[in-house]
Amino acid sequence: MRAPIGDFDTATPAPDCLADLVAPVADAVRGWSASVPAEQILYVETDDRWADTAVFVEHYGRDLLERSANCVVVAGKRGGETTLAACLVLSTTRVDVNGVVRRQLGARKASFAPMDTAVGESGMEYGGITPIGLPAAWPLLVDAAVVDLPWVLVGSGRRRGKLLVPGKAFAELAGAVVVEGLGVAG
């Protein structure tokens, strides 16, 4: 199958390549119940040598820069409580952690979660974290600009490989809250 965006050799429906996905992502695809069919989540094989955004778009297509999203794990703190959450923003922006995220989580302080926490709690590789398959208890803040895109390139749960997902599917994930202005120019 031809990928709808980017210059990839092949795109495979995620249900047909569960063995290529980390366990939490494969489980999420198996249990998929959104209005967008699971077969529309496409997996594309990529080389992790080209994982950094600038090199990635040079190799796989310049059009991907405006059609890619980054998923980051944040920690909101209030009193002695820490809440982990994920934020999905266009790769051309950065997450407004100290403003929008802090307010959305009702936290006194918010910051990016430490790498070992993000990896350990998500079950995904650092640099490949995706909103599909995150712990259901986590809030998932999704920038409205991501939901508006017909197709979005996101991580697959590991550094090698990516997912192509219709943007509207992210609004239907467990814990998802669509937020205007979550991603800011960076």
Score class of each variant (00 low, 15 high):
3 A>D: 01
3 A>I: 00
4 P>V: 07
4 P>M: 08
5 I>H: 02
6 G>Y: 00
6 G>K: 00
6 G>E: 01
7 D>A: 15
9 D>H: 12
9 D>N: 11
10 T>P: 01
12 T>W: 10
12 T>K: 04
13 P>F: 05
14 A>T: 04
15 P>T: 10
16 D>S: 14
16 D>G: 09
16 D>Q: 15
17 C>R: 08
17 C>Q: 07
18 L>N: 01
20 D>M: 14
20 D>A: 15
20 D>I: 08
20 D>C: 15
21 L>F: 05
22 V>W: 00
22 V>A: 05
22 V>S: 00
24 P>M: 08
25 V>Q: 02
25 V>H: 02
25 V>R: 00
26 A>C: 05
27 D>F: 03
27 D>M: 08
28 A>S: 09
29 V>I: 12
30 R>P: 00
31 G>D: 15
31 G>F: 04
31 G>Y: 05
31 G>E: 14
32 W>T: 00
32 W>F: 01
35 S>N: 10
36 V>S: 01
37 P>C: 04
37 P>L: 06
38 A>H: 02
38 A>M: 03
40 Q>L: 04
40 Q>S: 11
40 Q>R: 11
44 V>F: 01
44 V>T: 02
45 E>A: 11
46 T>S: 00
46 T>A: 01
47 D>I: 02
47 D>V: 01
48 D>P: 14
49 R>D: 11
49 R>Y: 05
49 R>S: 09
50 W>A: 07
51 A>K: 02
52 D>P: 02
52 D>E: 13
52 D>Q: 11
53 T>L: 13
54 A>N: 12
55 V>S: 13
55 V>F: 03
55 V>L: 11
55 V>M: 09
55 V>K: 11
56 F>P: 01
57 V>H: 00
58 E>N: 12
60 Y>P: 00
61 G>E: 10
62 R>D: 14
62 R>T: 15
63 D>R: 11
64 L>D: 03
66 E>F: 12
68 S>H: 08
69 A>G: 07
69 A>H: 02
70 N>A: 10
71 C>N: 11
71 C>G: 07
72 V>Q: 13
72 V>P: 01
73 V>I: 14
74 V>P: 02
75 A>N: 04
76 G>A: 06
78 R>I: 10
81 E>D: 15
82 T>E: 13
83 T>V: 13
83 T>E: 12
84 L>H: 08
84 L>P: 06
86 A>D: 07
86 A>R: 05
87 C>K: 06
87 C>Y: 06
88 L>K: 01
89 V>N: 04
94 R>Q: 13
95 V>K: 03
95 V>N: 03
98 N>H: 15
99 G>H: 06
99 G>C: 07
100 V>H: 04
101 V>T: 10
101 V>S: 05
104 Q>Y: 04
106 G>H: 08
107 A>E: 05
107 A>K: 03
109 K>C: 10
109 K>L: 13
110 A>F: 07
111 S>H: 13
112 F>W: 11
112 F>P: 01
113 A>C: 15
114 P>R: 12
114 P>K: 09
114 P>W: 10
114 P>D: 14
116 D>G: 08
117 T>D: 14
118 A>Q: 12
118 A>K: 10
118 A>E: 09
119 V>I: 14
119 V>W: 06
120 G>M: 12
122 S>P: 13
123 G>S: 10
125 E>F: 07
127 G>C: 09
128 G>Y: 05
128 G>H: 03
131 P>S: 14
132 I>A: 05
